[in-house]
Design a binder for these strands. Structure first.
Lengths: 195, 195, 195, 195
DNA sequence: CATGAATGAGTGTTCATTCAT
DNA sequence: TATGAATGAACACTCATTCAT
């Protein structure tokens, strides 16, 4: 099951690929650039990835598991669902702030669904899973009267759209902390908090 | 004022360019494809646009004026600011639903600010102008007690992020009417309506 | 027999063509450049010359008659053949100094005999005609004992080579008068003057 | 010191380039033709030379060192300066007869000084160096009374012009031996030998 | 396994030529 | 006759992919 070759070298290439694809898009990112960025030779890239397409797929899909682990981990609803939501939203934004480069590449793929159809489908699953993850918390919030009555899936969809929009426009690492706090606070509005 | 050459042919090429750039990104959209889509010969594209780069710039910037006309036209605040806001939001979403292809290309540019720096700057101006356009309405809403107290510029920024996110994920023309209504209703939440 | 169209416009195009071909060679000189230089529209060039090739031929061959008139006009030998030669050489160099641009284009053609075979043949005739023109004078000079005994055709060939070499290297209009005088004096050496 | 890649392949490409540039000029000589002539694939040319321009520069400048070695090697003047000159001239002409193709390309560059300005400057240095190389011999010849009094630099300049003219017009390898001998004998005349 | 030279399909761009106005 | 828009062949150049070392 263990991969042969050097796991570490493969990881460096993948990271470099994310960097270059994110910055320049698929076509303008060259294997040569990626190899340079990774500090390996040109030909070595093809030792670890069959071709450019496979490298792109790997760059998009492999980190996705980590994303899902963070984004879809929803706590059991307690009597304080709004506080729990706030925690969750905060974790989400923190994660995106750290994964700015990868996030940008995801936007790139989502933005060209015909061109990257297979990957798009894969990424699109995510929104359904997020619905499942957030539904209990939202329903609980409505139940205890802290949230106004909205369809939970609509709420999740708009929240996800908001995240996508934010990371598109305000993704820079030098962005100061307070700005992220603002986004988090406003994101909560989409869940319809009373008062 | 009239250009020589055919205005109509130029417009057809520009429209085809938007279509192809939107679908495939800058590099994968070839001049040949654009010419075919526009129903002109390959060389004719270069009669109207100096090179691919200029064509891209024109495709991004020329329709922007129309966008601004729609998006930045804010009415004088009356005693019903929330109703006015709802009208405005509705107009915005309707516009994006119609301009889905162009919108997608804008996202593409915004998503690669280093690569398309000049265009990015131009597009980025827009957010500042939208702040100016919405500020009076938001302040009026807070004044009359229909909106909770939030910084108007923050509200505008989050609203714009939301729009960007929605048009990224749910932009397809076959999307049914009711879905758009939902987005409009939820967008209003970002303005902090009381109740 | 009279040409239709405007003789004057045709002449302007031809002059511009010589200018551009001389400066940039055949391929790099574009019809557009020539038209601009001539102050006529692009399409007009094709009204007077069937295609680029014909224009080039005309630019090379039409002024040749004038060249021949000057270069091949040899006086009846008198008892002062060396003085007559000096006059002739002086006239030749003066002519080339004036026709620097055209001369350069001739060099260009001669230097690529395979590429411009037809034109090369035509220009090559010139050396034979120059032999005929100078022979009487050279023989007379040898007869009266002012020139050493050399084959007259060899003398002419070397003299022509010298002219070609000079106009290649020292053709600039800003070249001062004294430099030309030097070339004229030294050219005479090739005829083998005694002392 | 050793380049990576194959020195031998690079040399073949360079030789082919000289051949094609010499025959057709810069623009008409295509990379495809050069690659074919060199027996390598199209893309391989770009492995050894960054672009067409660099290939041209290399084709013009790299063999120049060899030229200089032959042309600028002037012997210490003895009591027989004219015999030494004859030797030198003979060596020069022999060299150009062998390097006919390269020589033609040099003429091509010199003939378009505006177009190939940088290269022209480089080649123009050569005439100054030739002056230095020939000066001692010419002065010695004048000193011992074998040459008439002429400015040595003028003599060198006219001699160089003559060489240029000869290689322009009579450069073909099939040219018979006796013709070259004639040119050598007549070239000596430019140095002003007494009798 | 690592390397980078060799390859040629594919791209943007130029420009001579045609031809409708 | 004069014009310049339309056309597409031809070119320089890039770069993913292969493969010998």
């Amino acid at each position: 099951m263990a991969l042969p070759k050097s796991e570490e070298k493969r990881a460096r290439i993948l990271e470099a690929a994310i960097q270059m694809f994110s910055q320049n898009g698929y076509s303008k990112a060259t294997i040569k650039d990626i190899a340079n960025e990774a500090g390996v030779s040109f030909g070595t890239v093809f030792t670890y990835f069959e071709n450019k397409d496979e490298l792109f797929k790997a760059a998009v899909l492999e980190p996705l598991e980590e994303i899902k682990r963070v984004m879809l981990a929803s706590p059991e609803p307690t009597e304080e669902p709004v506080a729990q939501l706030r925690e969750l939203i905060s974790a989400h934004f923190q994660f995106f702030a750290q994964q700015a480069t990868y996030s940008r590449m995801i936007q790139y793929v989502i933005g060209q669904p015909d061109r990257f159809h297979e990957l798009f489908i894969e990424l699109d699953q995510f929104s359904l899973q997020l619905r499942d993850a957030l539904r209990p918390l939202i329903l609980k919030g409505q139940e205890v009267g802290d949230l106004i009555e909205l369809h939970p899936d609509d709420v999740t969809d708009t929240y996800l759209a908001f995240i996508n929009g934010v990371r598109l426009t305000r993704i820079d690492s030098y962005e100061e902390r307070s700005r992220w706090d603002m986004y988090i606070r406003h994101a909560l509005l989409l869940f319809g908090p009373k008062q």
